[in-house]
Each structure stands twice: as structure tokens, then as C-alpha cells.
Amino acid sequence: MTEQKHENPAHWDEAAAHYERTAHPFTSRFAEEALARVTLTPDMRVLDVAAGAGALALAAARTGAQVLATDFSPGMVARIAASAPANVEAKVMDGQALDLPDAGFDAAFSIFGVIMFPDWRKGLAEMARVTRPGGLGVLATWRSEGAATFLLLSQIRRRLFPKLDGKTKLPEGAVALGDPEWLSAAMADAGFQAPAIDTVVHDFELDVRQLDTPEALFGMSPDWVALDDAQRTEVVAEVRRMAGERAVLPIPSTALIAVAKR
């Protein structure tokens, strides 16, 4: 099976700075939503799996809890370590095979991380394994076709180039865990109890000035990579048309937040 870009740590190392600047402020809003559904205290140990730039880990640290942030990208881990307070540790680690003991954490989170794993079932099982009985597993997943620029590109590409529709797709885990029933069943299969699942919507605010450098804005999306230069020009023009006179184009993005006991 051919490895996808999102499965390669080097891809995320290269994208770390851009991700921290653009995606991190957006995903932080959903991380805060996840934290609002649990109670963390200073005596708790918290795990953030596939932490990215640390949206959840850094927010959880404000509760005083001891937080371990893990990611398979050294570049992402370095970003977390550079801004982490004393109660946050950041380590390079594969979320599908956590180098951690059983039942060592009071709560394990993954904010749009496990959904990207080649073996997302193993990722969920590892979260359950390292969570103590009675502890919590918290997962954020994207609904439907993803979020932010990925969602916008999917919608525009389907409208402008319908014959191309279906040639690229979201990771299997993002599709499966974007359905509430599948999400609930998958967490139960992994070893958690049936979760409470909430739907949360926030706008990704696309600064229209970023369209001057569309490769930086859209380059991580497979829907962009699949287009030729002429098609990309059409996409940029369509986004400008949608924005009209606005300086910011809001892209409503829907997530599922699941909270389950171990």
C-alpha cells in the first residue's frame, strides 16, 4: 500500500511552522470545547495523542494537570517543547504503538489526530490501554468532508470539476469516525464505554489576502495537489467570488467531540 503524505513524519516536520500559524489557532477552539466537557485537576495525568502543535496539551496544562504530549513528528514535538510550561512534557511517539505503561493516565485525548492514523483502530486501542479504569477517553473528529480549507476545496472542486470528484479522499479513519454511530462503536470496540457525543461548529476564518499565495494556503490538501495550474487558478477565482467584498471568508466546520469512560 502506498504511503500517503499525512502518514509521513517528514511531511509534518516540514509543515510544522505553517500548521502552527494557521491550523493551530483554529483547532485550539475545538480543544477548548473538549476540555469544557471534562474536569481536570492538578493531581491528574493527561495524555495528548498526535498532539500536533499542542492545542490540547497547552490548554490542559492551564488546569495544573501533568500533561504528556506525543506526536510522531519531531518538528511538531519541538514546537510544543518551545512554548510548554513546566507541567507539559513532549515526546516523539507513534500513537499506534505508544511506548507507555498500561493504565498510566487519568485522561487521554486526541484532537483530530487518531483519525489520520493508517491503523486508527490501533490508535484508539492504545488510548484505551494507557487510560486507567474509570478514566476518560476524549476524541475530536471532523464531520462530513473535513474542515477549513479542506472542506472548502472539496466543495469547490465538486462544483467546478465534477468529473474529478472522488479521485482523492479523506483518510479512512476520518471518514469512519466522522459518523456518530461509527464513532461510538469504534470507541466501545477499543475498550471505552459508549461515549457521549456532541456536535460542535466553529468558523475557520480564511483571510482573503492569503489567496495571493494559494500554495501555502491549500498545499496540504490532496484536492489541491490533484489539480493542474489552470484549475487552481479557477479555484482561487471562485474563492474570491465567494468572499465578495469581505476581507475574511468564514468556513463553517463541524466536529464531533466524544467523551467516554474507560
Rank of each mutant, 00 (worst) to 15 (best):
V138S: 04
A147G: 09
D228E: 03
G146E: 07
A237Q: 14
A176I: 15
D203W: 02
A230C: 04
E205C: 13
Q210V: 07
D165R: 09
L170N: 04
R240V: 12
W224A: 04
T149Y: 02
A185D: 15
D189K: 07
L211Q: 11
V175E: 06
I156E: 05
L153N: 02
P222N: 11
L227M: 00
R143L: 03
A174N: 04
D207E: 15
K163A: 15
A186I: 02
A237K: 12
E238W: 09
L170F: 09
L136C: 06
E145D: 14
D189Y: 02
L136I: 08
L136D: 04
G191F: 05
A148S: 14
E234D: 11
G173Y: 06
I197L: 02
A188R: 13
L211E: 10
V239L: 02
A186Q: 08
S184A: 09
L217P: 00
G134E: 06
E181Y: 04
H202R: 09
A148Y: 04
A196C: 13
G166K: 05
L170W: 11
R158T: 03
V175S: 07
R157M: 09
A230L: 08
D223A: 03
L206I: 09
V225Q: 13
D207S: 13
R158I: 00
L211H: 09
K169I: 05
W182K: 15
G135C: 04
D189F: 00
K169T: 11
T233I: 05
S144W: 06
V201S: 04
F192W: 07
A190F: 05
P162C: 00
R157A: 11
R143Y: 01
P180R: 09
T141E: 05
V239H: 11
V225K: 15
